[in-house]
Write a protein that binds this DNA or RNA. Structure first.
Lengths: 260, 260
DNA sequence: CATGTCGTTTCAAATAGTGAAACGCTGTTT
DNA sequence: AAACAGCGTTTCACTATTTGAAACGACATG
């Protein structure tokens, strides 16, 4: 899923914005990337990209592979990410509750937030069975195709649903909802019952149960979920599993100052 | 320790460079910071800082506290840091060995790298006793006052030792080496025996034993260390402890393709 | 009420950034 | 071996962006 979204942003300077998008693009590549490919991706000249890469490299955000000349993300992102990790209430406040949810259900537990228009995995607590894809921290999840995404469509800013309405809904698996009206009905159901599920929609054979986390002002600030194979989390989930997720989400919300 | 180093960097554009330094500065603050304080810190105008903050905020690298108007680091750093974590061989390759070292010695274990001129903690494996300060990932360590720093002075680029020679050596504790000639002798000793120690130099009552990690080209790419109270790691460390650290560093180096 | 400091905005002036084009290098193809 | 393609790097005339002094309204403080 490419994130090279050249969308206009209020007050952003084009020079800085391009540089930030370049470093983010590199962070999501699987290996070093040629400067020419970066230039093509962003529709910028090689000279401009080269200048940005030098600037980013001088501060450690980017590095150049000496053998191939290709560019890669630098360690500074990881370092700064660690340096500021404790600054995010959601993650530190939620962690004990998420570990308890994992212990109670045995499934992998994830917490997501809306970051720059995307629903992103902030932290993963591994379950008995290891699920890597789509749960690794940093991963962006499709709004229409994931349980987390549906929570955000149901309880998040209205602009999210508006944006999804206007875009095609790509299929990740044969079960992914791609019809806008089916998605609207599903989102309405999520809103009604307070939790979401997405059996087979991201990965075949895998299901997720997600619930919303609110802050002291009643705003959706995160979503949490258990993730596991369908044999452990059936398409029609057990009440106990749903209650475990919803209950944990409520406790985290209360810890953040939320009042029902 | 302020890192607002306005040092000239080859090929860096000043606009981008200032913005990167601002986000890094925010990452190391303990809470939201006023725009005016940021402007003062970097000697830039409030209008310029405002523009950069808006640009950084539009991509999630910075956020503004709605109640106070102050600026804080955004979750995007943490997210991207996680997204690219697996891309750093050193950390993933070293992890099993570091866990084993921790199990063998019982002490906290850290791995550091040189990032943008600083020795920075990349990862921490907690020991039996918890030591937080100066070992949290993202923390920058003084070259002259830490065991990790001395490894880099002894085995890293000569420019590091040159830079330290030209700067005053601030004292962190009464035991910190502040005399340049004493430091040179200490670094020479580190080079000779292949490991370093720094009892009481960073924190009183705490000691560290560090050793170098080389890559397939024989370059220093990281340093690893055990950290603990002096009652567990005496100023004159036990041979077994030294051998455990040095041995682990060698195994990690070999895993990275190093040949003695 | 006066004062100080904040974040935000404006816009003339200044400066930085842009990108077409060229270059040398390297790997691939013929 | 020669030709070709694509790479990263550099140049510099031109363009566009960025800069920052100044002003503003909001808010906290004395």
């Amino acid at each position: 899923m490419s994130d090279v979204l050249d969308r206009p942003t209020a007050g952003a300077t084009s020079t800085l914005d391009l540089a930030l998008r370049i470093v983010e693009f590199l962070a999501y590549q699987s290996g070093p990337t040629t400067l020419a490919a970066i230039a093509t991706e962003f529709g910028a000249s090689k000279a401009t990209v080269h200048r940005h890469l030098r600037g980013l490299a001088s501060r450690g955000f980017v590095r150049q592979d000496a053998a191939t000349g290709r560019y890669d993300v630098g360690v500074k992102l990881m370092v700064l990410g660690e340096a500021c990790r404790s600054r995010f209430d959601i993650v530190t406040t939620a962690r004990p509750e998420l570990i308890q949810l994992r212990d109670e259900t045995g499934q992998a537990v994830t917490i997501c937030a809306l970051v720059d228009g995307d629903v992103v995995v902030l932290e993963l607590t591994q379950g008995r069975t290891v699920i890597e894809f789509a749960t690794r921290p940093g991963t962006k999840l499709a709004l229409h195709a994931s349980a987390h995404g549906k929570i955000w469509l149901a309880f998040g800013p209205a602009a999210l649903l508006d944006a999804v309405r206007q875009a095609p809904l790509p299929a990740w698996t044969p079960e992914t909802i791609t019809d806008p009206q089916t998605l609207e009905r599903d989102v309405a159901k999520v809103r009604e019952r307070g939790w979401s599920t997405a059996p087979d929609e991201v990965i075949s054979g895998v299901n997720t149960i997600a619930a919303p986390v609110y802050d002291h002002q009643g705003r959706l600030v995160a979503s949490i979920a258990i993730v596991g194979a369908k044999q452990f989390i059936p398409a029609d989930p057990a009440d106990a599993q749903v209650e475990a997720v919803v209950g944990t989400a409520r406790r985290i919300s209360r810890a953040l100052g939320w009042r029902e």
